[in-house]
Design a protein around this nucleic acid. Structure first.
Lengths: 347, 347
DNA sequence: GAGTAGAGTGCAATCGATTACACTCCGTGC
DNA sequence: GCACGGAGTGTAATCGATTGCACTCTACTC
């Protein structure tokens, strides 16, 4: 047809209704008490022209975008969609929307999104990744826009943090294994830079220490927080022969990779080796055997992050002190853990 | 500290550099040939003030937001993050970003996002869901902004569509099963309203017809495109006793639900019953037995959608005719399918 | 009947960028 | 000496909304 039809503006509506733009704006915002007649004319014009106020123009004038930025480590990890969904719900309920960015394990991409969101003048940011440089953390902490960090703990930067109690969670998982009689265990870690890695391994070690298990009996294996990392760690472990009877993993995806490798090697789970994960993603109950894991309150954290941002917004600057909130985790016992095998596995 | 510090504006920069805002704008955009001295002063001021141009103001003036809206059926289905990731990559490369909305199987939410994106004046929209009313499809088709529909086929609306060749894909899956000797089969469908449902079941039926299998031998079961639907369908199927030797499912999540129910009932897969899914999500190769499935080119489709939008944008209105592009699917044979059992299952 | 209050609107500035147009120099050509 | 052209900048309009302030009426008080 014609050129790309320009959407109608408030001026078009005003003209058609025979009033000023100020009146149109007021009628639509429901402020002032317009005469029923005026209001009617405005609404009719809005209807006729299929008018939709431009959020862009409004944002410029109001100096608010009604948008929160949300950066996650990797949207492909099912852990995040659940969190994102909950955050989006909470935001939508109060008229905000979420601008999403997935860092995809790449610090440059994280920075890209940080910049993007700053340029877009989001009203607040949720940073749910630890793939962020120290420099960026400081920039965030100094930023005039409210920031909430989820599941990461930037050291020595005063900033609001909402995180699962990773230390206590993995402590519980270790106790569970120890209670089942496991003494020689392996732990598959995340890659460096993922801040949840440290508290989790520490919780695990602490529980072992408390049970009198020598640190040397705990094998720490490198991983990458992905399926491949879990798989490879187990392949290597078995290749060199091992007597561990349990494997704890940084997260569920790693654990599922581990399960896969154990199955390929015909090691029975949990009869020969028990496996526990962390996160409680949907797939944890899909796999065979279903995965014992430490559940994070994903949705709850997403919701909390948004609520916190809103609170910071209407408290204004300096209204709310940075604070670290620890959300409890809960052990989900499924099929992948059982009593320690009597004898060692040699193969 | 003070009030929420307002970010510095182009005027602040101009003042500090001792030039006009026009010059600042030109220097930053790299147009005109500013004297080296002027350019230097501008850059210095930008640096000193930590100036970032407001994308909001720019969008208003340019009447372009450099943003594409993307609506998916359900971000929790791993199928979508892969597509979204690819779309985001493609968009970022050319300076665009993606505003994401998950309809979460709710038509009202889909409409909400449609409105939101229209208000935000996105430069184009990707609609990767069929949870959209006829009215909305027409609205989209008439919309002045470019729209690409992914994996849905609004009937009788002239609009650009990129979709997997669902019919051919499921036809192939059926042939695979038939080739393995299966004759009595079940098919777990999606809920009504999911447009991929129809071509898939049709492809399945067609392959059976071609093989001379009477339609009555194909059991069509209701599902919901979710884990629960697959699980329930199989539970019901087994409860009433059945002689099927293979189950095809609308998608992988459904198939994984079916696997779970079969396992609970101690039916061996594939020895007693074969299962195939559709999508090829990551979890398809995680489950046990790993899932034979028909793979969609998720990333490719996300990329294509963005490219198409860009093409529509610089072709201007009417430059590109609506067209339906079918992306081929590929059978991924894994462990969940095998030769048909000799005898029926009675339990 | 003058004064006042308040309801209902309009005028115009503003948010922060981009860009058409006008203007000032300065060097050249003749 | 004057016209001309181009390089380099500045002035001001514009994008589409919101909102403080001023204004016009009407109704009411005394």
């Amino acid at each position: 047809m014609s050129e790309r039809a320009a959407p109608s503006t408030i001026r078009d509506v005003a003209k058609r209704a025979g009033v000023s733009t100020a009146t149109v704006s007021r009628v639509l915002a429901g402020i002032g008490n317009p005469k029923a007649e005026t209001a009617g004319a405005v609404m009719a014009a809005v209807e006729a022209l299929d008018y939709r106020p431009s959020a862009v123009a409004r944002s410029l004038r109001m100096r608010r975008t009604n948008t929160f930025g949300l950066i996650v480590t990797d949207i492909q990890n099912p852990f995040f969609p659940e969190m994102v969904g909950a955050a989006d719900d909470a935001a939508r309920k109060v008229g905000y929307s979420i601008l999403l960015g997935s860092a995809a394990f790449d610090e440059h991409r994280a920075v890209h999104y940080l910049d993007l969101m700053a340029d877009r003048r989001v009203d607040g940011m949720i940073v749910a990744t630890s793939q962020v440089s120290d420099e960026s953390w400081h920039w965030l902490a100094d930023s005039p826009v409210p920031v909430v960090v989820v599941n990461a703990e930037p050291a020595s930067v005063p900033i609001t943090v909402i995180t699962s109690d990773n230390r206590a969670g993995m402590h519980t998982a270790a106790e569970h294994l120890i209670g089942l009689g496991h003494r020689r265990m392996a732990y598959i870690r995340a890659a460096g830079g993922i801040t949840a890695d440290l508290p989790r391994i520490e919780g695990f070690r602490a529980a072992c220490r408390d049970a009198g298990i020598p640190a040397a009996d705990i094998l720490e294996l490198p991983g990458d927080a992905l399926f491949e990392g879990g798989e490879k760690a187990v392949v290597d472990l078995l290749a060199q022969g091992t007597d561990v009877t349990a494997i704890a993993c940084h997260n569920d995806i790693t654990a599922i990779g581990a399960l896969r490798a154990l199955r390929s090697a015909h090691v029975r789970v949990p009869q020969e080796i028990s496996v526990v994960g962390c996160d409680d993603i949907a797939a944890a109950s899909w796999v065979v055997p279903s995965l014992t894991t430490v559940a994070q309150q994903k949705a709850e954290m997403g919701r909390m992050a948004v609520e916190r941002l809103l609170a910071m917004l209407d408290a204004g600057e300096g209204g709310i002190e940075p604070e670290t909130i620890r959300v409890p985790m809960a052990l989900q016992i499924r099929e992948s853990t059982g009593p320690a095998a009597a004898g060692d596995i040699k193969r």
